[in-house]
Design a protein around this nucleic acid. Structure first.
Lengths: 149, 149
DNA sequence: TATGAAACAGCATAAGT
DNA sequence: ACTTATGCTGTTTCATA
């Protein structure tokens, strides 16, 4: 699939404001509303746009403490990596999970209510798992969601 | 600010689908549309909802190669951390920037068109900066955006 | 394939209970 | 906080180029 300049401008506009009405979006990009509608629909159907999400501030939603936990698995557990990836993503407070190549196997981006909650998360969901070799918790002081789009 | 059960359900629903119409949202949560409208407005005004964004697949938008680059700064550059944080967030291809406590100062989550593009990013934006002590590039094989909400 | 017009449907808003 | 009513805007379809 090939994206032209107009598509990129549509993506940029919707990444900035997912609720931009079709009329306003069309005007912003310089095409007719009907054209705009079909283009956006195509972008969704092709999977270029995966969805529209509200960006909730974890701190104001009761989880002020964020961390990225680096996880290394035991060598023999390689076959279970993908299953574990999705298992982690279902846990409360988990924001993102990254499957990596390199020194670590996972980065788990998590938001916890407090220090105890974070510790509990690591112990109960990671350390307790015999496939997990080691974890390394990095506290997040600031998180900037970039505008790219 | 205190969030009740209804607020949490609103947040969960909008985090899942930012474009859910107010009517449908109200029905889903079990409140009247007008009540729903005012509650969502409050959540936005208070900053609990920071915005609504389209989730664009970087791979299908011309940037199939993702990485998380760990960055350590020189000791004397601590005062410039925040400025650098926002500077990084403006660069093309940058998805997230995390300011950390611990062994590393930053994690930079970036999407590049290819291997050369990724290398260029690290060299031109990080290595070239005298405040940067070292970088460690971790390739991302899979990325799951968790459903928490 | 993009456009423009016109009919339709559906929502946001604000009143009153 | 809910219900109802109103005005309006987005959305869709179709014909056209």
């Amino acid at each position: 699939m090939r994206l032209d300049e107009t598509d990129h401008r549509l993506l940029a506009a919707l990444a900035d404001d997912a609720r931009l009405p079709n009329n306003a979006l069309a005007a912003k990009v310089g095409i007719a509303p009907s054209t705009c509608l079909t283009r956006v629909r195509h972008l969704r159907e092709k999977g270029v746009i995966r969805g529209f999400h509200a960006d909730v501030d974890p701190a104001l939603a009761g989880r002020p403490l964020q961390a990225i936990i680096a996880v290394r698995m035991q060598g023999h557990a390689r076959s279970r990596l993908t299953a574990f990836l999705h298992q982690l993503a279902e846990l409360p407070g988990v924001l993102n999970v990254f499957l990596l190549g390199g020194a670590h196997d996972f980065f788990v981006h998590v938001a916890a209510p407090d220090s105890d909650g974070l510790n509990d998360f690591v112990v109960e969901n990671l350390s307790v798992n015999p496939d997990v070799a080691l974890t390394e918790t990095n506290l997040i002081f600031r998180h900037v969601r970039a505008s790219w789009y």
